[in-house]
Design a protein around this nucleic acid. Sequence first.
DNA 1: CTGTTAGCGCGTTCAC
DNA 2: GTGAACGCGCTAACAG
Lengths: 360, 360
Amino acid sequence: MEAGASATRAGGKNSAARPNLAAVAALAGVSASTASLAFSGAGPVSDATRAKVLAAAEQLNYGGPDPRAQSLRRGRSGIVGVVMEDRLREAFRDPMNVAMLDGLADELGTAGLGLLLLTEPGSGGPELSLAPMDAVVLVGCSTQLDRSVVALHQRGIPVVAIEAEPMVDVLAVDLDNRDATARAARHLHELGHTRVALVTLPLEPTHPRGALTEERIAASTAFTSRERIRGARDVFPAIGGVVAAGSSVEEGLIAGRELLGSGDAPTAVIAQSDLLALGVIRAAQERGIRVPEELSVVGFDGVRIEGAAPYELTTLVQPAVEKGRAAGSAIVELLAGQTPAPRAFTSEFRVGNTTGPAIS
Amino acid sequence: MEAGASATRAGGKNSAARPNLAAVAALAGVSASTASLAFSGAGPVSDATRAKVLAAAEQLNYGGPDPRAQSLRRGRSGIVGVVMEDRLREAFRDPMNVAMLDGLADELGTAGLGLLLLTEPGSGGPELSLAPMDAVVLVGCSTQLDRSVVALHQRGIPVVAIEAEPMVDVLAVDLDNRDATARAARHLHELGHTRVALVTLPLEPTHPRGALTEERIAASTAFTSRERIRGARDVFPAIGGVVAAGSSVEEGLIAGRELLGSGDAPTAVIAQSDLLALGVIRAAQERGIRVPEELSVVGFDGVRIEGAAPYELTTLVQPAVEKGRAAGSAIVELLAGQTPAPRAFTSEFRVGNTTGPAIS
DNA sequence: CTGTTAGCGCGTTCAC
DNA sequence: GTGAACGCGCTAACAG
C-alpha cells in the first residue's frame, strides 16, 4: 500500500469486490453482529468499538448495509407502489392528481416510505407483482384490477384504493362523486335548465372520444366517471353528452364544439372536471355564446386554473390533497398492523359566475 | 378438508404462515430449484411438473416468488430512484418536469424498471441511501449532493444527472442553458434593448424571493438557474433582476410587478421559464404596459400554456421529453454494463410575438 | 429434465 | 458489551 490519498477510482483489485458487513467486521476485528449494531445503532455498542467499525468501513469504502438484504431480512422495503392510469403525462396534466400525489407523498415521506410509480398491467410498464413493495395505492384505476389485487393479497401486501369500485380487503378512500354531481345538477334544475349535457372523463382504458351511449356507460371501467354520470342522472334521468379523451382544456374545447354545434344545443353543461369545463367555455366563446347568460357550465375539482379569468367556475371543490394524505396515513396504519376504517370525503358545491337561469 | 370453495379468507392455521417456494415445492413433490424454474420459466421444465407446481401453489395460495428475496439473490430490484427538489407539487407544477418524467418513465418502463420518487436528503423524506434501487437519476438538484453521490458510488449504483454541475462518475444529460439564453439575449440586444432584467428560477433550496444579487448568484446551488444567468450576462454583463420562488405564472406575476413598479423599469425581461414569462406579461397588462410594444418578454422551455393567448411567447424550446428519454436509455445501458457517452441537448430559439424593437 | 449444494448480505436470537 | 450460529426466500451452479 502506498500513500492513502487514493480512493478516487483506484484500480487495485480490492475495489473490484464490493465489501460487505462481514468484511468490515473482520477488518475491525469484531463479529458481524456487532458491526451490524454499530451501523443500525439499535443496540448497546461501546464507542470505541463503533469507531473501530466505522474506520474499517471507511478504509474498505463500505457504504453501509445493503438495502436489498435489509429488505429481505426485515421483510420491509420501505416502498409503496402507486398505480395510475397508463400515461404519466396524462395523469400529471390534471392538477387533482398532482395535488393528491403531493398529499400522499407528504404523508408517506414522513414515515420514511418512498413512492414507486407503476402503471396498470398490460401497458408495458414494470410488472405490478414484481416490485418489492410494502403496500400499494390504486388511484383512478380501471375496475379490472382484481387479478392483480388478488396477487397482492396473497403476498400480504395491503392495498388502498382511491375512488374505486369496492373490493374485498381493499381499504377505500372515497369521494362523494355521485352525490356531489347530483347537487350540481339540482342547482341547474332549479335554475330552470332542461336541456343539459354531460362532458365526461374517459370511460375506457383506451380513452376514445365519442357520444355518451348506454352501452359505453354499461361497459365502462372508470369508476369515478361512472359515479358522476349516475349523479347527473339522479336529476336528469335521460341526460346525454360526450366522452372526452382526457382531463384537459383542449379536450373540453373539442367536446364543447361537438355539443354546441349540434341541432338542439344544451343550455347547460355538466363537465366532469374543471379543465373540461373551461374548455367548454372556450368553445362557447368561439361561437359567441355567452356564459352564463346563454350557457351554464359547471365543473368538478375546484382547482385554480391559469387563464380562467374572468370566469369563476361553478364547481365542486374536492379535497384532493386530503384524499392523498388520508391514503398515506391509512397505509402507514396498515403497515403498523392496525385496521384503519375506510375514509370518505365530500365535495363542496361552490357557485361561481358560470351558471345562471335558463333562457327559454 | 371440506369442500374446496373456500380460500376466501379461511381461518385455518394454514393461512397464518405465508407460504414460500420451498413449501410449494414440498407439496408438489419436487425440489425447490425446480419449482423456481417452473415460475421463472427460465429453464427446461416438463409441462407435467410445471402443472404440479402451479397446482400446489394455488392450493397453498402462493402468489409467486417474493420480490425482496429475488432482489437480494439477483442483485437487482428493478427500481430506479429519481431525486427531485423537495416538494412534489412544486416539481409537478412545471410542465417541463412532467414532460421529462414522462420520457424517463417511458424508457424505463420499457425495460421493466419502476420509478421511485425520492426527495433531496434533509427534506424529511425517504433516505436516498436506504432504498433498494439499481440506479439513480438526479434532476434539477442542488449542487450539494456530493455526499449522497459518493454513497451511491460505494454501492456501485450508477448515477445519471440531468442538468447538474459535472460530478465524477456521474453521467451527464445536459442542456445548453447558457448558450441558449445568450441567444435570446442577443436577440433582445439586436432589437436595441439595453434596460433588460432577469426573472430567475430559485437559486437556493429554500426558494426565497428577492433581488438578484452577486452574493446570491455566487452562493446559489441551482445549476440550471445559474447557467441561464451566465448566458444572459454573456450579452448584458451587468444585468440584474429578481429571483422567483418557483416556476409558475403566479411567481412571474409577483416578479413582474416588482420589476415594472420600480423607477427605471426595463424594456425587456428575460424570464427563466415560460410560466414566469407569462406572469410577467400579466403584470404588464395590469399596469397597462403593452407587450411587445412597450415591453419585450422572452421565456424558456417552449411549452404550450393554457391561457397564454393571444400571446405566442418568444422562447427557447427545449426537448424535455427527449431529455428524460435520454436519461432513461442511459440508465438502461449503464445497468447493462455499458458505458454510454454523456448526452447534450440544444434548445431552439423560437420568435413569437412577445418581443419587439426597443422604444427609446 | 430434475435434484443437490451453496450461498446472496444481513439481523437476530441466544449464550458468554 | 460482544461473539457464534442460524435463517430470511430464493436462485445459480453443477451433478445425476
